[in-house]
Design a protein around this nucleic acid. Structure first.
Length: 428
RNA sequence: GCCGCUGUAGCUUAGUUGGUAGAGCACCCGGCUGUUAACCGGGAGGUCAUCGGUCCGAGCCCGAUCAGCGGCGCCA
């Protein structure tokens, strides 16, 4: 039986059996309190001398934190117990006495990263992993409902997607392969058959970034759809983010409480999100005291200042063409701007999505590449897609870890990833 | 890659103008029948990141190296 099943009025007075790990232990003479943790919750167990055999009492006494244990006993309601109920033990079985657990009440973020394989057991990490699962589930539910197909692009790639300096190089039978930075080009290939596609896959960036929102390996949720324009794609993303926020609220109240998230901040994520042209956002930044040129990419600091006072996400659309990669489609009515968008999360969190309409004319794509000093030969198969029945299409890429960092109200992206990979951390 | 900061017990840390390294938690022993990361008494635990220098004397001053953290740039 799981701990959560015990925490119920209908169990009071009955005999139950739970297995798990010792979360806290305290003794007071002839009385031992063991708080047992399993994947569902925690519950207090009281071991009284005389209620179990002398051997069992000794075992309970020796059970330090993380000892794996099985307990049988009678349930009672008890206000003084952490989760409102407690088990009065009649049988105690220890599977393994734990060595001294290194995690105590005083711990630094750095130490927790060093022993992440153990910190994974904490209530915080357990809560975050459950919320992560909800986010992924609700992405899949939402996309399936909209007729999108989930696909699996390759992680080993032969060419560059966005400039060589940020690629991880791996030896590949005498050749050089790279770990993918984005599956966008592959999704565009899938689009010609399945029309609306998405993937949730890792992406790898060898950027030497040292910020609270960068990882070298992250979960990238990307989508691509035929016949869809920039504004329509924004509509989809808006509804999707709301759907994710709603499912967190309905499935993970307890978990949000454990990470101390103010539920009001998630409840306020509803239609309509703010939608501003790029120039308008530059103006907002200036009003908040930032020194910004007319055409400038927004860094982490700028996004933080700009989004600080907002209560829901902000779309920033139609960036100056010169700021964006070649594949973004220039607005036919104003070629100095592309038909793209970013989504900035509120409360200072900043960019979580980049997306927009792709160039679908072969000639236009080649001329934009030349403009950026890229050789179309290097992108041969990508260009080739435009030779056989090209169609208007749009897509986006969302950083799943950034999204969760914001929704859970955490201060660092490495808190939402079980084993974060950063420029200075490859272990555990 | 650049700038800044930090490194003392398993963890979190104090350490005064340079003069015998101190505590809390965890751990071990003892006590306690209602504890809430309990409490009371006792104990053990230190190459002060590493290497070198200055000095009668270095945790403290100087230099180098290593590791980590924060920020910038770049990005999702």
């Amino acid at each position: 039986m799981h701990v959560n099943d015990v925490l119920d009025d209908s169990r009071v007075g009955t005999l139950v059996n739970v297995r798990g790990w010792v979360y806290r232990s305290r003794e007071s003479g002839q009385l031992i309190f063991l708080v047992i943790r399993d994947s569902t919750n925690i519950v207090q167990v009281v071991v009284e001398k005389g209620a179990v055999t002398p051997e069992e009492f000794e075992m309970a006494k020796k059970s330090n934190i993380e000892t794996s244990i099985e307990v049988e006993g009678k349930v009672s309601k008890e206000q003084k117990a952490v989760t409102g109920y407690e088990i009065h033990a009649t049988k105690v079985k220890v599977y393994q006495f734990a060595e001294n657990f290194p995690i105590t009440k005083d711990k630094s973020d750095e130490f927790l990263l060093d022993i992440r394989h153990l910190w994974l057991r904490s209530r915080e990490m357990t809560a975050i992993m459950k919320m992560r699962e909800t986010v992924l589930d609700s992405i899949r539910d939402f996309m399936r409902e909209r007729g999108y197909h989930e696909v699996q692009p390759p992680m080993f790639v032969g060419g560059m997607v966005e400039g060589g300096s940020t690629l991880f190089e791996v030896p590949y039978f005498g050749e050089k392969a790279y770990l993918t930075q984005s599956s966008q080009f592959y999704l565009e290939a899938f689009m010609y058959s399945l029309e609306s596609v998405y993937t949730i896959s890792p992406s790898f960036r060898a950027e030497k970034s040292r910020t609270r929102r960068h990882l070298t390996e992250y979960s990238h949720y990307e989508a691509e759809a035929a016949w869809v324009g920039n504004q329509q794609m924004m509509d989809l993303e808006e509804e999707m983010i709301i759907a994710i926020a709603q499912s967190l609220l309905s499935s993970n109240k307890g978990e949000l409480e454990i990470v101390k998230r103010d539920l009001k901040k998630i409840k306020s994520v509803e239609k309509p999100f703010y939608r501003y042209r790029y120039e308008k956002v530059i103006e907002i930044g200036r009003q908040k005291g930032l020194q910004l040129d007319d055409v400038t990419d927004l860094g982490e600091k700028e996004e933080r200042v700009i989004t600080e006072d907002f209560d829901k996400p902000i779309f920033v659309y139609n960036f100056p063409t010169e700021l964006k990669p070649f594949y973004h489609r220039p607005d036919p009515a104003d070629p100095s701007h592309v038909m793209n968008h970013d989504v900035l999360a509120p409360e200072g969190y900043g960019e979580i999505i980049g997306g927009g309409e792709r160039i679908w004319s072969k000639d236009e794509l080649i001329s934009r590449m030349r403009n950026d000093n890229l050789n179309p030969e290097d992108y041969q198969w990508y260009v080739d897609l435009r030779s056989f029945g090209s169609v208007p299409h749009s897509g986006f890429g969302l950083g799943v870890d950034r999204l969760l960092t914001w929704l859970a109200g955490l201060d660092h992206i490495n808190k939402v990833v079980p084993f974060p990979r950063t420029i200075r951390r490859l272990k555990p």
